[in-house]
Simulated assay, not measured.
Amino acid sequence: MKAGEYVIDTRDGRVGQVMGHEGPCVQLRPPGGGREWDCPPDAMRPAPPGEVLRARVRALNRDARLP
């Protein structure tokens, strides 16, 4: 996967944007921003556009509720 692409971490179903590679793992970041996490390349699959859109809407809704 290339930097900027969206994938699904098949271990827990989270959608993440590929930020880079560190050793054997790929760093992913949630679509609305936030803390990166490491994911092994064999635990990723391309995210369909609908999944990316849902993740972005969830992030926007979450941010709108913050004081």
Rank of each mutant, 00 (worst) to 15 (best):
P48C: 01
D42P: 06
N61K: 08
R35H: 09
R65Y: 01
R58H: 04
A59W: 04
V52H: 08
P46F: 08
G34R: 00
G16T: 05
G33P: 12
G32T: 05
L28P: 13
A55V: 07
L53H: 04
P24N: 10
L66E: 12
G23S: 05
A59N: 08
G33F: 04
P40R: 08
L53K: 11
E51P: 00
V57E: 04
P31W: 07
V7G: 04
E5A: 14
V26A: 12
G4I: 07
M19C: 10
V26T: 13
G34W: 01
D12L: 14
G32A: 03
L28E: 15
G20N: 13
H21L: 09
R54P: 00
L53V: 04
G33D: 09
R62D: 09
V52C: 11
P48I: 00
A43W: 08
R56S: 06
T10A: 14
P40V: 00
V7P: 14
A47C: 12
L53N: 05
R11M: 07
L28D: 09
V15H: 11
R11P: 03
L28K: 10
G4Q: 05
R58W: 04
Q27R: 15
A55C: 07
R14D: 13
A3D: 04
A59S: 14
H21A: 06
R35T: 12
P31R: 06
W37R: 07
L53F: 08
V57I: 14
M1V: 15
D42A: 13
P30D: 14
L66F: 06
L28N: 13
Q27M: 15
D63K: 06
A64T: 03
P48Q: 04
Y6M: 10
P30Y: 15
G13A: 14
N61A: 13
P40M: 06
R65Q: 13
Q27S: 11
G20H: 15
Q27K: 14
V52A: 02
P41D: 08
E36Q: 09
G34M: 02
P30K: 12
E22G: 08
P40K: 01
E22V: 11
